[in-house]
Each structure stands twice: as C-alpha cells, then as structure tokens.
Amino acid sequence: MAMPTTPSVPAPRTPRRLRGRTNTELYAWMFMRVSGVLLVVLIFGHLFVNLMVGDGINALDFAFVAGKWASPFWQIWDLMMLWLAMIHGTNGLRTIINDYAERDQLRFWLKVGLYTATTVTIVLGTLVIFTFDPCPPDAAAELLPSFCPAP
C-alpha cells in the first residue's frame, strides 16, 4: 500500500485584474452612496421650499416656478437634482432588472427601454431649465411673476 500522501493543491491565484473586466460595478456602487447623500440635501431643500414655506403647495403655479428659475441658484439646484436623481434611479432599476429578468433577451430590451426613457427625460429636463423664459411675451400678465415688465 502506498504511503498516504498529502494532495498538493495549487495556491489560489486571483489575478489582480482579470482580462476584460472593469470596475464599473464598483463605481456604480460608490455613485449610489455619494449621489444618495447629495440627493438627501437637494430633495429635502426642494420639498421644504416648495411644500412647507409660505402657502406650501397652494402657491405652486407658473409664476412660482418662473420666480425660482429666474435665479441661477435654483437652476443649478434643480439641474443637479434632475441628473443625480435620474442616474441614481436608473442604476437602481438596472439592478432590479438584473435581479429579476432572467432571460437574456428580456433583460437586454428592458435596459434599452430604461436607458432610452432616462436619456429623453434628462435631455428634456435640462433643455427646459436652460431655455426657459420666465416672461413669455404672448402670455397673460396675471400668470407671470411680478418682476416681468408690463406688456
């Protein structure tokens, strides 16, 4: 009978970087945390100013939005909120699609739909913030913010 030998197991080797792999998932994970903390500040500021101050939700109309977006401060605030919230939500939904859609084709098309909707929404929102005119020339004066010149 042969002597019992200790089987030799090759030392585990995990290359530091597998060929073709990237750290995308790590960056996505980190983005969720960083954007999440920023969104807490941005969204609660947004909710407080729009719902708690003054007449709250009853004050919301065109003149209210125009009054805010006349200032670069709220333009940048809302622009950051739009981009961060859309990308944060899109990455969240991407995770959920990866978790529950098991067929490759379905997963692919769900993500195509998701990214299309996200791109359209971000582009639309960005254009609205930057091409917005708080005093449109053909509008009724009583609907406009008080700083608009009289027609």
Binding site: G92, A117, T121, F132, A139, L143
Partner: peptide
C-alpha cells in the same frame, strides 16, 4: 421604484412651463 416612476411624471409635468403658463 415608486419614487423613480413619479420622477418621470414630475419632469414631464414641469416641462409644461416651456409650453405656456396656461398649460402648466
């Protein structure tokens, strides 16, 4: 998921400020 779907609707309705004060 709920907040994300609301967000689409919220960007779309706010975009109406670009159409006209009356529409918004």
């Amino acid at each position: 998921v709920g907040i994300f779907f609301f967000l689409f609707a919220h960007v779309l309705d706010t975009a109406l400020v670009r159409v006209s004060p009356e529409a918004y």
